[in-house]
Structures are given as C-alpha cells and as structure tokens.
Amino acid sequence: MSKEWPLWEVFVRSQHGLNHRHVGSLHAPDAEMALKNARDVYTRRNEGLSIWVVEARHITASSPSDKGPLYEPSESKVYRHPTFFDIPDEAGHM
C-alpha cells in the first residue's frame, strides 16, 4: 500500500478576540494527528491559542477568472463607505 497522507489546511488564532488565520498546510493521516502536527509545525513560538485543521479537499475556493463578476459590482457602490457623505462640522461628531 502506498497512499500519501491527505493534505490539511491549518488556521491559528493568535490572541483572544482575533479571528483564526490561515497559516499553512501539512500532511496527516487523520484529524487528531493533523492537530498534533500543526501544534509542532506552526506554534513553536507562542503563535497560537487555538488551532483549526480542515482537510484541504473540503475547501471550496473561488476561481481567479471569477474576479470580475464577483468583485466588480462593489466598485461602483461608493455610497457604501461613510466618507461618501459630507456632514457639516456644525452637526458635530458622527
């Protein structure tokens, strides 16, 4: 039997109150080993308080060719940003 260990993506939350952030990937036979390996590979210097691992094949990613249809519509909607509106100084802080 020659079967390669599956690939896992690793997410680490560095401090309380912050989001988990993708830090890299690794190979492991199962979730338990993936967590153990992630601890050794990605948190050797106090980088994390919490680790998530997810098998890479379960991640669905958008395709670079969808960039236009996905993100261009938001470019024309400048009114979604607060700076679009002029508020007179007299109205005070808003």
């Binding site: 039997m1 020659s2 079967k3 260990w5 036979p29 199962d30 080993m33």
Partner: peptide, 13 residues
C-alpha cells in the same frame, strides 16, 4: 508507520 497510521485512520472512520 506511514502505512499503519493510514490503516488506523481508515478503520476509525
């Protein structure tokens, strides 16, 4: 070890 851990993972699944 590599093969054994894969077999163990498959068994647990």
């Amino acid at each position: 070890v590599r093969e054994g851990l894969m077999a163990h993972a498959a068994k647990k699944r």
